[in-house]
């Protein structure tokens, strides 16, 4: 564990709390992509099957359980109690293409041919693009509530810190994980445009709106 990875994981955790806070405070999930949230649930469930086969640390297991449980809870909130506030008409990105694409990549380039590694690779590829429905929705509406942009920013910052963690681990431990690196780089690049708009608008106290 290094500082980049620890802060990244904590930011990831924070992003989920920000999202839950937004839904509770505004009593609405308007502007939040249910597709992105459902994709994250699929990502966590397919990646963390090693909870049953391998023990790393209490920290590792608790984080995994939290990510699975919280993503399931968010999908439930959006699907049931807050359904009337869900902006379905702007959440129109074709998420099935992302799932099929990630599945094909997972089968073509798995970490190994073990079923857990195929699913792990699938989850890595899927996580890289899971934010797309959310970014697409923000583009369609042209703006987002500030708290929704904080959520996306925390997620993007978590990914950016993972890149630094990999550079650090490469030099200190010789650690290499090409699949995670490539997918992680793609994932971070997807946030690039968003970062710029976020920093120039939200940080100056203006509503997140696209030029």
């Amino acid at each position: 564990m290094n500082i980049f990875r620890l802060v990244a994981d904590l930011l990831h955790l924070a992003s989920i709390f920000i999202l839950l806070l937004k839904i509770q405070q505004t009593k609405s999930c308007a502007g939040v992509s249910l597709k992105t949230q459902a994709l994250y649930f699929v990502v966590f469930v397919t990646r963390y099957l090693d909870l049953f086969t391998h023990f790393y640390s209490v920290y590792n297991s608790l984080m995994k359980l939290f990510f699975i449980a919280s993503s399931a809870y968010i999908v439930y909130l959006m699907w049931k109690p807050y359904r009337p506030t869900y902006s379905a008409s702007t959440d129109t990105f074709r998420a099935e293409f992302l799932i099929v694409g990630a599945a094909l990549l997972g089968l073509a380039f798995p970490d190994s041919w073990h079923i857990l590694d195929i699913l792990w690779s699938f989850s890595i590829y899927l996580e890289a693009v899971a934010i797309l429905p959310q970014l697409f929705q923000m583009t369609r509406t042209g703006e987002a509530e500030t708290i929704t942009s904080h959520y996306v920013f925390a997620l993007g910052a978590y990914r950016a810190l993972y890149l630094m963690n990999w550079i650090y681990r490469y030099y200190t431990e010789g650690y290499m994980d090409v699949i995670a690196w490539v997918a992680g780089a793609v994932q971070t690049i997807l946030y690039a445009d968003f970062f710029y708009i976020y920093l120039t608008r939200v940080m100056r106290g203006r509503l997140f709106s696209l030029p």
Binding site: D9, D50, N60, K64, F67, D111, S112, H114, W120, D177
Partner: peptide
């Protein structure tokens, strides 16, 4: 059966 690889990152 071969073991799955170890992935220590979240």
């Amino acid at each position: 059966d071969e073991e799955a690889k170890v992935h220590d990152e979240l």
